[in-house]
Amino acid sequence: MAHSAPSRKRPATLGTVAVLLIVAIIGALWVPIYARSTPKLGPFPFFYWYQLILVPVVAVLSWICFLLLKTRPTPDAGPGDGGGAQK
């Protein structure tokens, strides 16, 4: 059961990931932004549709973070089972 050396990521990448995740968390944590009933989306008050739409938004943000942090298979190990090398 071999373990690879720790993967090193550039500070810029880590910074981007941190910002994306913080945005995702604050979007749900900062209740005053969405504790209101207007604008309505059809019959849905803002409070409900904002949170329901936030779910896929957070998923996309997390997916971007996943891609940014994805470990690249080491060259001598052959192709991994993912989408191949990043960057």
Binding site: L21, A24, I25, F47, L61, S62
Partner: peptide
Amino acid sequence: GAAGFYALSYTIMVFPIVFI
């Protein structure tokens, strides 16, 4: 009513937090 929706807000933020 709305107070019960904290559960949705919780599941929105749980995954980014755990991601860290």
